[in-house]
Design a binder for these strands. Sequence first.
DNA 1: CCGAATTGGTTAACAGTGTTAACTTAACGA
DNA 2: TCGTTAAGTTAACACTGTTAACCAATTCGG
Lengths: 200, 200
Amino acid sequence: MSEEEKSLREKILDTSRHFLFTEGYSSLSMRKIAKEVGASATSIYLYFENKDHLIHTLIEESVEELSVAIEESASQKLSTIDKFEAIIRGYVSFAMANPEKYQVIYMVLSSEMGRYPKEKFRKVRRGYALLESVIKQGISEGLMELEEPKIATYSIWAQLHGVISVVQSQRLDSRIDKNKFIEESIEHIVQGFLVRITTS
Amino acid sequence: MSEEEKSLREKILDTSRHFLFTEGYSSLSMRKIAKEVGASATSIYLYFENKDHLIHTLIEESVEELSVAIEESASQKLSTIDKFEAIIRGYVSFAMANPEKYQVIYMVLSSEMGRYPKEKFRKVRRGYALLESVIKQGISEGLMELEEPKIATYSIWAQLHGVISVVQSQRLDSRIDKNKFIEESIEHIVQGFLVRITTS
DNA sequence: CCGAATTGGTTAACAGTGTTAACTTAACGA
DNA sequence: TCGTTAAGTTAACACTGTTAACCAATTCGG
């Protein structure tokens, strides 16, 4: 499907995502999007209720793609420990390979978040459910020692997001190699959850 | 100093911070701030070059306060391990006790970040420097086994921010107790960096 | 003591914003 | 062929950040 044949709706989404990533939320305007896709500003309202809904659609699409990426990453692995790490690496890989799509998920930030229907957001979070089930498996196999798998799952997710967001927002010290930073962070996070191996 | 006697500049800052926290960035307008402080919109430009600079001032103030809080938290501790944990808990405590001030630091998000002079931001980050020095100390004492203290420092900071932002942005599952989540996350993060204690 | 400069504010205006209402224009079904 | 639907348009409203021009009071230099 060539660029010409893409539906206007799809072109609007692509253009919005790109503007959002390159120029930020506050300078994203309906008229600018419209000009880029070669339509009038009001045409956008034929496909999206308003600016918020347009962005919410972007978020949902990204969350869906991220979920798929995580599931694929874990599907090939057999052992619980491998699955555990595969989910984490799948998450990070998706984020680093698709910064535009990843960042859109967290772009509507905390305070603005009230406008986004949380329920909808939660429902799609299949990757989270997968991680939780693997953690439960890990506990039953004695790999981890955790009282609350739900908390652990959220904690891992939060830590990973923190690591990625520091890299992607370019808050990382320029002397630090990004890949090394990510790799070491992953290892620390993983180690923080595994049971200590005692040498007798 | 009563509310009346506060300088207009200070009132603008307080009002902006509050609006930013309660209603978000995109609905923060100069006219709204002005109305709240009882002045004309253009009066704000007497104290701040523009809207961006106003927000940057808020960020700088918050970063400064956070640095002080961290330093105070660590100052009473004697052992390296206590200092290490005190810095981490100082960071989290400040964030949870002053959500308005903490969130403003990360409110100007990734994509918008280009407009904020990174150098200035880095310079003030004294808390970071303190953590790095404690980690170096920890390495020399054999508490930690890390090749790159700089990376470890950033990683901890990133993980902590991830944990706090998940809580404050209310992305956390409602069934999870916030304090428990924070406490367990801290423990996991700390454990992820300490050398494994081997029982013989 | 008086004029000049500074301080701290104002109003009016410009270009750009999200969004709505009303209108057009083409395609399709009965 | 008439009515309906789909997909788009233009004009307008109320709002935004920001600038220019103006004003009044205070302070300072001679």
